[in-house]
Amino acid sequence: MATPGKVRALDRVMRVATGIIAGGSLVAMAAILIFLLRDSWPSILYNGGHFLTSISWNIGNLYGNSLSHHNGVVAPAGAAYGILPFILGTLLSSLIAVLLAVPLAVGIGLLLVEYLPWRIGESLSFVVEMLAGIPSVVIGLWGIAVLIPWIGRDLGPWLQAVFGFIPFFRGPIGSGQGLLAAGLVLAVMITPIIAATTRDVLRQTPRETKEGALGLGLTRWEMIRAVSLPWSASGIFGAVILGLGRALGETMAVLMVSGSAVNYLPQNIFSPIGTMAATIVSQLDSAMTDPTGMAVHALAEIALVLFVMSILVNVPARLLLSRAVKKGGEAQ
């Protein structure tokens, strides 16, 4: 039998050990920031603020001996790195995805919590969770085989016929690859995430208030408008931002359908685009041919910008969600 002293010591060891491991996530986040900053430092010196505002992405002349010097760092002659097209491509495709996903996801969330009987709701829940689990390359596969031809043949011409008075919907449709395809693929990917979180938030609405509203003679929709939605609004908003964060960082599916544009600002909803995440993958092979290594540093800087962006999006989303859940906990 262990003595009480030994037991207390064991407990202390357990507490400290699990605490250190729990701190690991903090260490990992700090390490990601530090190493990305360190690796992109030459690119930050070389490109300065132009990195975020310039359109041209050019790894320079790799075949001459001439090098260009700037701020004490060396790159091939003519090298210039600007990611404005990738930033715009990322933001626009994510915006389209969110606009399409929000009504879908909120509708599904309401269906699951307020309308469907428990048993059917559970099966639809399963479908939603399955969709969330489908690998992004498989969604990209569907994008290539089904979505792109459909946009090129049917959806594109139809959109132009209906919304052609808006300049952003005019212009050549092309094969169907591009901004719209990326937005649709992203919408398919973030809808289940927003829907599942919305469902969890809606479930926190106090039952007594809901029953009270119905008891006063409100219809179910009026009850949702008066009780469920106001109660869950901030949580649903958090869920939407969470989905936005996922869309901003999604790589493979977007890479497969976006047309991987470089040096080109999106002109309309059918333009080929490149996103930040997709460009990190699509440009790696050519970047590794740069003997000065500057192109790889520039990719690191894209990763750094993406990392900072994901934190700026996820922190408020998580704050809203944790507050929504706490509110639900107190009410019950």
Partner: peptide, 13 residues
């Protein structure tokens, strides 16, 4: 927040 970091960023890290 870490769950929301894009996987490509972790890959690059």
């Amino acid at each position: 927040v870490m769950a929301g970091v894009p996987s490509i960023v972790i890959g690059y890290f």
